[in-house]
Structure formats: C-alpha cells, structure tokens
C-alpha cells in the first residue's frame, strides 16, 4: 500500500449528500477482475452524457460539462470535498479503487458510511471527517477561490487552508500507523498466527460444531 504522510493538493467540491457507491462506480464496471482501470468510470452516470459499458474508449464519450469533475478548474484535484454519509450503499471496494485510480488521495466529509470508510484505509485513500460547519466553510472557500488547495498532514492530523487556518482531525492510531507506513494488514495479522491458533483450539472445545 502507498504511504500517506502529507499532501498539498487541489480540492474538488462535490455538493451532494448521501453519495452512494452505485454513483461512485456503476455496476457494469464491477465485472472487472482487476483492481485498476476504474478511474475513467468514476461517477460515470454523472460524468458522461451517454451510457457507458466496460471495454469502451471512454475518452471518446460525451462528457457532461456541468459535472464538477469535468470543469477545467478542478483538473488534477486530489482532494474530494463531500457531504454527509459519503460512500453509502454497497460494499464494493471498486468505489475506492475508482477514486484512487482517478487520482484522489483524500475525501473530506462530515460523515462516511462504515464499509466505504474501512475500505478506504486498505487502499491508501484517507477518509477524513470534519465538522459539518467546517465542511460548509471549505465548500464556500473552494467554490469561491479558483485553484483552492488544502494541506493534509496525517502525522500532525491537521487540514490547513490557504489562509493558514488549521483544523484538527482524528484517525484511529492503528489505522494511522498503517497508513503512515504503508503497511499491509495481512502481513501484520499473520504475525499473530499463534494467537489465532490458540483461539481456535479453545473455541474447538467450547463450540465443536463450528469446526
């Protein structure tokens, strides 16, 4: 997993609440057996005016000029600013892959759906929770200021605006440690293989029908 330490990047504001994972990556693209290549289809139904299918040349499709991601001022954005309950719905990790493949490394929102939140950490995408009032302020600033950038510092756990205002955020210590060091969960868990085997031995006597 790619490490995350600090990021200074352009912000793209997506002013909708309850953005679901069907909207982030529509179902037809879930047929892929790979983890890559989802970037062109991030927010596919909103981003293009014509229907998309896997295997198409998406660069030739008609884009929706009104959709925020298609506006030239947000080209190259790596921080997505969103509203509450971002990533609700299906457990598809393809939603996180699509955001990452597109180039996003941070999503800022007042709240996230649990499974999406969890999936993000496994892929080096930082889902960052700030108070609704602060998110409101960031929306206003991002929309009013072309080239609006934020600095996200995971070590210090702060988001800093261009005017120097600094907002603290919290990330679970374990997740933060993994993200800062780009650690692979599975490798870490397997270091506790003895504990797992000991649990199994105990459980086998308590609940033998499970084995």
């Amino acid at each position: 997993m790619e490490k995350f330490e600090t990021l200074n990047a352009l912000v793209c504001p997506l002013d909708r609440s309850n953005v679901d994972t069907d909207a982030i990556i529509p179902k037809q693209y879930l047929k892929s057996v790979k983890r890559t290549g989802f970037g062109p289809n991030l927010f596919d139904d909103w981003r293009y005016l014509d229907p998309g299918e896997p295997g198409m040349d998406h660069s030739r499709r008609r884009v929706n000029p009104d959709f925020v991601l298609n506006q030239p001022r947000y080209e190259g954005a790596r921080i997505l600013l969103a509203r509450k309950n971002f990533g609700c719905g299906s457990s598809r990790e393809h939603a996180v892959w699509a955001l990452s493949n597109y180039g996003f490394r941070v999503v800022i929102a007042p709240s996230f759906a649990d499974i999406f939140f969890n999936n993000s950490f496994k892929n080096g995408l930082l889902p960052l929770i700030l108070d609704e009032a602060i998110v409101d302020q960031l929306f206003r600033e991002a929309e009013a200021t072309p080239g609006y950038r934020l600095t996200v510092d995971l070590q210090a756990q702060t988001v800093v605006t261009p005017s120097g205002a600094s907002f603290p955020f919290q990330v679970d210590p374990f997740r933060r440690h993994c993200l800062l060091n780009g650690l692979d969960d599975i490798g870490l868990t397997l270091q506790h293989g003895e504990d797992i085997r000991a649990y199994e031995a105990r459980r086998r006597t308590e609940a033998p029908w499970l084995f």
């Binding site: 999936n119 496994k122 868990t189």
Partner: peptide, 19 residues
C-alpha cells in the same frame, strides 16, 4: 459486509480487523 481487501484478509487469516 466487507470489502475485497477484507475478503482477502479473512481468506488469509480467518480474522477481521475491527473496532
């Protein structure tokens, strides 16, 4: 419900990391 990284984690370790 879990994501694909967790599917791999459970396959490999029989465990899930969770709070």
């Amino acid at each position: 419900g879990i994501g694909t990284s967790e599917v791999e984690h459970v396959l490999a370790t029989q465990c899930l990391l969770q709070k």
